[in-house]
């Protein structure tokens, strides 16, 4: 059975020595951290390092996160920063990391509720955007997407960018309406 505790409670419990709370944090947020690292373009070995680095940093900030309820966003942002540092090949520059107390607003789409909304919004898009983004979600390359949708390969990149823009607009409208 899933642990019903809120993220902030889990964080406090983990800070006080509750190992099960730490395990639950990993269970809830680990998958999206991996997705962020991979989305940044890291291979499996570097993505594993980026995720591990974010957990190690959380371990050192269990008591002083500014917004414990947003620990999921903090972790996603931290992974992203680690990933970008790795991509810049600043090997020891990784140590210049500062405490990421302010979650990147973009991380919200990786929260569970945000993800649901996102997927519903994709379904609400017209073709070819709906199918294209669903294919992109399963990591098909541009050539395969082109073949599936009957598009010229060269048009997949620009079409994807336009579709993401439409999705962004749709989400903004939904936020405004709320």
């Amino acid at each position: 059975m899933r642990d019903p505790r809120e993220p902030a409670e889990l964080l406090t419990a983990a800070a006080d020595g509750d190992r099960s709370a730490w395990d639950e944090l990993e269970h809830r947020f680990g998958p999206r951290m991996w997705a962020v690292a991979r989305a940044c373009g890291l291979g499996p070995a570097d993505a594993a390092d980026a995720v591990q680095g974010a957990w190690l940093r959380l371990l050192q900030h269990l008591h002083d996160l500014r917004d414990p309820a947003r620990v999921g966003g903090w972790l996603a942002t931290t992974v992203r920063r680690e990933a970008l540092l790795m991509l810049r090949k600043e090997r020891l520059g990784a140590s210049s990391f500062e405490i990421a107390d302010d979650p990147d607003p973009a991380a919200a789409v990786l929260e569970a509720d945000g993800r649901r909304t996102l997927w519903q919004s994709v379904s609400a898009l017209h073709e070819p955007c709906r199918s294209l983004l669903q294919l992109v979600a399963i990591d098909l390359g541009n050539q395969q997407v082109a073949a599936r949708l009957g598009l010229p390969t060269g048009s997949v990149g620009p079409t994807k960018a336009r579709c993401l823009e439409k999705l962004r607009t749709l989400l903004s409208l939904q936020e405004t309406a709320q």
Binding site: P31, A107, R115, L164
Partner: peptide, 12 residues
């Protein structure tokens, strides 16, 4: 919201 997070969320 940047594309990379969109794509991460979609993959997830």
């Amino acid at each position: 919201i940047n594309d990379e997070y969109f794509l991460a969320a979609l993959r997830l």
